[in-house]
Design a protein around this nucleic acid. Structure first.
Lengths: 148, 148
DNA sequence: TTGCGGATTAGACTCATTCTAACTGATTAG
DNA sequence: CTAATCAGTTAGAATGAGTCTAATCCGCAA
């Protein structure tokens, strides 16, 4: 189920962590592996359950720590929808999120550069934004897949 | 500080509540008044504090109830930023939100129809969205006001 | 006057997240 | 080699926004 990291992914992990003076640990590797293995925007708890299959001693606190670390060094994005539990997403390309009302599932929606640009353009002068979050909420015809 | 509702606002409240078979109560009036008096995206707790000045017996649970009711009948919008406490906004025109990193304050950003349209257009067929939330996070030069 | 139903209330409860303090294990300094 | 250090990990306690529950209130209809 959960593959090991490819050489490429491991390097990616190591480089990103290294840049902010942090190390690859077995726990971080396990959590990162889980994120890449199934890109369905898991919650912390889901990551925890999945990672435990591979590393039974892993603690929830560590999963929180790892995910926070990854967010800090730009390896993954947080996805929030209203007050539901935070989800995590290893897709770094600019994209929006669509939450399906019926299933609760989250889909990535590609965000073309020109749309992103037009969004940035609505900010009045003096406002400088680093992060834009766009989330749709509605219904997807069942079977729609934008898993990515 | 907290004015009474104008005749117009009271009618607005009554009509919106009435449409979903609910009544104007003193508590709902107080909470609505607070929302209109200071459009700074207050949290539930802030609404609670402010409304209490005018109606000391008011309970927190009621504030939660009122706000939920208002959201339900389209009188106000919820504003969420990451996992911070939910804020409430009586601005019904389509707009985005900008959260100032430094102050935590939330500003409304006008959303021109064509930008909204271009956003909708990125949804693949089969995705049908009722709600779009757009939030910026960054710095506003101090003094910037988009209070509205 | 009684009964009904929606609204309100205080306080208990939930649950995601954060905090704390102890522990581990690798690396460095003496 | 031994000790000190330090990042990382861990279990469990603490936090806090939000929800639930059960009792009460209140306006209205029978």
């Amino acid at each position: 189920m959960i593959q090991n990291l490819t050489e490429h992914d491991r390097e990616h992990l190591q480089e990103a962590l290294g840049k902010s003076g942090q190390k690859v640990t077995p726990q971080r590797e396990a959590v990162f592996t889980v994120l890449l293995a199934q890109r369905d925007h898991p919650t912390v708890d889901e990551v925890f359950q999945r990672a435990r299959e591979v590393m039974p001693g892993l603690s929830l606190a560590t999963v929180y720590n790892c995910l926070e670390t990854f967010v800090g060094c730009g390896l993954v994005r947080q996805v929030n929808h209203e007050r539901e539990s935070t989800r995590y997403c290893p897709n770094l390309a600019p994209h929006a999120h669509f939450r399906d009302k019926a299933t609760g599932r989250v889909h990535d929606i590609e965000l073309p550069p020109e749309v992103l640009k037009s969004l940035r353009s609505i900010l009045p002068p003096g406002f400088d934004s680093e992060v834009i979050e766009i989330s749709f909420h509605g219904r997807a015809q069942s079977g729609e897949q934008t898993s990515n």
